[in-house]
């Protein structure tokens, strides 16, 4: 580990990125519900209000639509707001401002404005928060040209991609899996960026390409580890960015392994896995496929409260192991 690398949690990494950006640029400010003295619902902003004051760590009323709109307007006129949704589910209250305003403003005005806003969405299941506090809505926003949508999976990427998002002139939506907030990992000190729109090969392998997002990257790596004992060699790609998608990295990997498995937590149909599959089906990698493409996604139900049901709703390591094994052994 480099000298300046430390172990930080995913939440700490995000907080550090925000602090660095605020230190460097007066225009950066945080907005959201209970992000001040409370520290944010998931303690991501923590004590930043003590360092930067209430004018730059702004508690908003419980006004997702209005708050998102204020962030959009501020971004159009010279500030660099980072707007925290308390839960990603509440994007549904603010879709007007995200989809109709932030995403399209530059286009509608013929390039006369930019909207450098960052919106952060604590997402995903696994906390027993049930159907309205556990969703993974990244594909919803990923469908909208004008937005950039990212899902960092590690503390390192959480910091680097957030810093890239803050520097980005366009609206960037960050989906942060709530179960990742406490995960620790090496994070360099100081400023660095991880590019938006670039996937990362987390593990090289020859038998199968797994394209995973967010927390599923870690589950897929675990599955790959387990399958190594069976002589199955899996490549795991961390998609990292939903829009714009890094097609090249996936295409090259599938050309090498000839098999593709997509693993994501969101509801399986009409999601990120559908896009990756279709993209490969349309690409030169199609001719290299030795097996059908398989998607492993969330069940077609709202996230249930009961913990066993909740776990059963989204792909788990044994599911990934079984799907990967079937694909490589030709059971598919």
């Amino acid at each position: 580990m480099d000298a300046e690398m430390r172990e930080l949690s995913y939440a700490q990494a995000i907080q550090e990125a925000m602090a660095i950006a605020m230190e460097a640029d007066e225009r950066v400010l945080l907005m959201g519900e209970d992000i001040g003295v409370y520290g944010g619902a998931f303690q991501v902003t923590g004590d930043l209000v003590e360092r930067f004051g209430v004018d730059r760590v702004m508690d908003t009323p419980i006004s997702e639509l209005g708050g998102a709109g204020v962030a959009v307007g501020a971004a159009m006129t010279g500030l660099r707001p980072i707007f925290e949704f308390q839960f990603s589910d509440f994007a549904t209250l603010a879709l007007e401002q995200i989809v109709n305003q932030a995403a399209k403003m530059r286009f509608m005005l013929g390039g006369e404005v930019s909207v450098p806003v960052v919106m952060r969405f604590p997402a995903g299941s696994g906390t027993g928060a049930a159907a309205q506090h556990s969703q993974s809505l990244e594909a919803w926003l990923g469908h909208v040209p004008g937005l950039k949508v990212i899902q960092p999976a590690t503390p390192y990427d959480a910091k680097g991609m957030l810093l890239a998002a803050i520097a980005d002139p366009d609206p960037v939506m960050i989906f942060e899996h709530k179960l990742l907030y406490k995960m620790k990992g090496p994070v360099p000190e100081g400023h660095y960026t991880v590019p938006i729109g670039k996937a990362d090969v987390r593990r090289e392998g020859s038998d199968l390409t797994v394209v995973a997002t967010s927390i599923m990257v870690h589950k897929s790596l675990e599955a790959a580890q387990a399958l190594q004992a069976e002589g199955i060699d899996i490549e795991v790609i961390d998609l990292r960015t939903v829009r714009p998608m890094d097609k090249r990295t996936i295409i090259e990997s599938v050309k090498k392994t000839s098999r593709l498995l997509c693993v994501y937590e969101a509801v399986k149909t009409l999601g990120v896995g559908a896009e990756v599959s279709a993209m490969i089906a349309e690409s030169e990698a199609f001719d290299f496929l030795d097996a059908p493409i398989v998607r492993l996604g969330g069940a077609e139900i709202p996230i249930p409260y009961n913990p066993d049901l909740e776990r059963a709703t989204v792909p788990q390591v044994p599911d990934i192991v079984a799907a990967a094994r079937d694909l490589v052994r030709g059971a598919r």
Partner: peptide, 18 residues
């Protein structure tokens, strides 16, 4: 749609002291 955006622009005006 423009009402919250105006409030955001006013926030910029106040913060940036324009």
């Amino acid at each position: 749609g423009g009402i919250p955006i105006a409030v955001g622009a006013a926030l910029s005006a106040k913060r940036l002291k324009t």
